[in-house]
Design a protein around this nucleic acid. Sequence first.
DNA 1: AACTTTTGTGAAAACGTTTTCAGTCACGGC
DNA 2: GCCGTGACTGAAAACGTTTTCACAAAAGTT
Lengths: 336, 336
Amino acid sequence: MTVGIRDVARAAGVSTATVSRALGRGPVSDALREQVEAAVRATGYRPNLSARRLRSQAARTIGLIVADIRNPFFTAVSRAVEDAAFASGMRVILCNTDEDPAREAMYLRLMEEERVTGVIFAPTRVTLESLDTCPLGFPVVLIDRSGPPGTHDSVVLDNVSAGAALVDHLVARGYARIGGLFGATSTTAQERQAGYAAAMRRHGLALSIRTVAPNAAAGEAEAMRWLADSDRPEALVLSNGLILMGTVRAARNLGLAIPGDLALAGFDNEPWTDLIEPGLTVIEQPVAEIGAQAMQRLFERIASPDQPVRKIILSGRLVVRGSTAQAKRPENRGPN
Amino acid sequence: MTVGIRDVARAAGVSTATVSRALGRGPVSDALREQVEAAVRATGYRPNLSARRLRSQAARTIGLIVADIRNPFFTAVSRAVEDAAFASGMRVILCNTDEDPAREAMYLRLMEEERVTGVIFAPTRVTLESLDTCPLGFPVVLIDRSGPPGTHDSVVLDNVSAGAALVDHLVARGYARIGGLFGATSTTAQERQAGYAAAMRRHGLALSIRTVAPNAAAGEAEAMRWLADSDRPEALVLSNGLILMGTVRAARNLGLAIPGDLALAGFDNEPWTDLIEPGLTVIEQPVAEIGAQAMQRLFERIASPDQPVRKIILSGRLVVRGSTAQAKRPENRGPN
DNA sequence: AACTTTTGTGAAAACGTTTTCAGTCACGGC
DNA sequence: GCCGTGACTGAAAACGTTTTCACAAAAGTT
């Protein structure tokens, strides 16, 4: 059968308590510690983590709940979270919700049953609302998405400013009829939309907003409909990398030149955005820092549960590329 | 304190055994089952999974060990694995090894300590060798990478044929001086290289092979060196999506036109490969099926541990795009 | 009506650890 | 020489479940 701590104890000629202490931290004489280590090697002993967790009531595990790991933003963040967790001897359980509140609820429940040390969570808007009311058995740090500071720490991008920055940039480049295509399920998209709207109003421009499920297929479909219109916008702001990709596809399908027929500015500085011709102007998010900061928030919250709620707001970086080159305004449109 | 099964039992006026049976499958009268369910709702009871696993000796957890979740191939596969696992009520622990044998060993050890039900693993070459000799406490299904059928089931691409197919395609398009840039750490890259070599020999062409760490940065660096040479190849075969991306970057840095100055053919039909101009010719891998098949192999192996080892070989699909347009051979090279 | 089987239930024994508690031993201060 | 005082150690009690075992009651079988 499988070898347990009592087998090691027997092999080392000591009690199970001594083995446990020798393996963990505990006062054990050097002689016995060596005996135990030899016995562990001899028997090929592997501690049973379930038993260890049950007894010590410390899971040393954090849950990471995101919409979809295939979104490069989340894979990058999750990689940072995992590395930080691993460095602290913690394990990570990764969950995909597909932006589905039912799956979110189910995974939160699972996290309770696992008695996890904490959770890092990018919730949909609907779950975000219920999150403050029902207490969970662990601290939660929200990433990417969060409303007004509530009961949970969060680390997010300065989405309003970022959305506005894209508009300001487009206006500076001579565009006026600027549309916005935003994700429908997250506060993040809402905030970016708010930033877009505020900047447009500030510039005295008319809003033109559509929302869509935040994935490439939906983005492409909606962009196809929108851009087929005769009064399509000159420029489009896209609220995340997947919608941006869908829109690029739609433009190509329709034979629209970028930026000649349509300027594009979006979010998420993914590797492909500077490989296509022309490169895409985007807001780059500090993905690694978001992940690392989230872990740090979590650790601090665990260390001192009663400290005031913190909301960390990180700044994006505008990366200007060819997709927002100077507009050829109608009044001075050249031969080409 | 936290509510346990005895609290539920007390609230329902039954024994803990009955609660356990009512929650799982077990003979319980309908009346008591309802009492128990009511008590569970009333107390907000959440079963402790560590305790459950310890007692029942069934982790209902599978480990998924891959090189890097940021590689879109692995994210796609892992998504398929997770969905399949979830559908069977299993949890997934996801681990990144960074192609580092030490990390692989450490994660395999962790899997033993978690007493996982099984593991799906994409090992480096060096770990693959030791894998047959040292017995682990769980069944393993290799994905993407595997040597000759050994002691573990595996599901892989027909890499040799795929590598040869790319060469055949390039030759048919009129290319002769075809180089190959392959990953250094995996058997997969080795097999693709073997297919490349066999096809080249079959066509009577000279081999030109380099190997590199399988990531975009290394691919770019090596491609820069290679393509700066005066006797650079006319076409390049790249052994995975990351190296392919790096090579595209290098070609762009050096001002080489694709396919005019350099034709490219690679692996992994990622979304960006048809967004860049021209599109990239690639072998598409059936990522979802690889993940699903791996889970199926694992379940079958668990169900009947002694069945013969199976190696599932799936075929890739050649997706032809502009990066391998007809070569302009020197003897009939036109003005443009 | 006297047996067997079936069905449902509770008490108690696991599962493999860590942690508490009560020592034992050696040591130094008086 | 006696008595704290530390430093280690082992026996046994947790941790929260599931599962075994025994048994009572109900249901079939002759």
